[in-house]
Amino acid sequence: MSRSNGSGAPLVLAVPSKGRLQDNAAAFFARAGLDVVRGRGVRDYRGTLKGLHNVEIAFLSAAEITTQLAAGSIHMGITGEDLVRETIADADERVELLAPLGFGNANVVVAVPRAWIDVRNMADLEDVASAFRVKRGQRMRVATKYVNLTRRFFAANDISDYRIVESLGATEGAPAAGQAELIVDITTTGATLEANALKVLDDGVILRSEANLVASLSAEWSQTARESARLILSRIAAEEEARTTREVRTRLEADEQAIGEEATRLFDARLRGRGRAGLIVLTCAKERVPHLADWLIDRGAENITVGQLDYVFSAKNGLYDKLARRLA
């Protein structure tokens, strides 16, 4: 979608158009207070973010999002790291993985028939592949849709005696069907592999993938697009900060400043405010709250209340800073 440059071109944010990934992405934005509004019906491939002008939502397949990020025809999108690493040759040059999103988790793995009881790791596979070629005059076949990930991973493990058989569906069935000797595929629980009498090699995990918020470095970043990105990322960061931290309130007869500094040192907590009669307000990572509370009681606190926050906005926006640095 080539559009005129200038400072006014809006931000194009792509979200997956199908399935679990779509639901999870919508939930992710909703948590950050960003409601994705789809125009007119499920068949419309354009949308908006409620309350944020200058943002255009594109509904695309995860594969399409990845190629368009690489091409620079969209600014940001949600897609799997597996697709980013597979589809984009020099991924780190062309896109920035801003944040892992905690859903769409899956591993890209090397799996061989369970009957290969002599093969446990990639070194075994190298040996077997070279013997296979010497004895049969043919290369061992690897069924996969991850051609590039496979090639890089095999090269890193000194395996050269193999052939890739491209497989665009039901890859796990290829060995049983006689189309390949082994596979490289994505798996979440391993159940499908098991059902097909395959096993993952001990060091055969090529990539631990999950959905990521990804920014294109080659897109035309107008001032408007940057500003929209800053707003979106600031809400996402605020929600994440709120979700992972808790607010801790108590009263202490002590030097608040010193308490704050020591709490920072011991628990990575932050002093957020001071009130009358020794009231102090701290925030702290969720899992460290009990330790912080114990410590405060030791210092003379009578009561401690812990609350959950909706958002924690900060002047410093780590997510946007990451993007701005790459765009500079």
């Binding site: 028939p113 009957a115 290969w116 009881i117 061992m140 060995p175 049983a176 009498a197």
Partner: peptide, 23 residues
């Protein structure tokens, strides 16, 4: 024997003889 005890039937690409030879 090992394969049958483990209940693995399909060898997939390599024969039991090839696996034995590698051992």
């Amino acid at each position: 024997d090992v394969l049958s005890i483990a209940g693995i039937s399909s060898v997939g690409g390599r024969t039991a003889a090839e696996i034995a030879e590698r051992f």
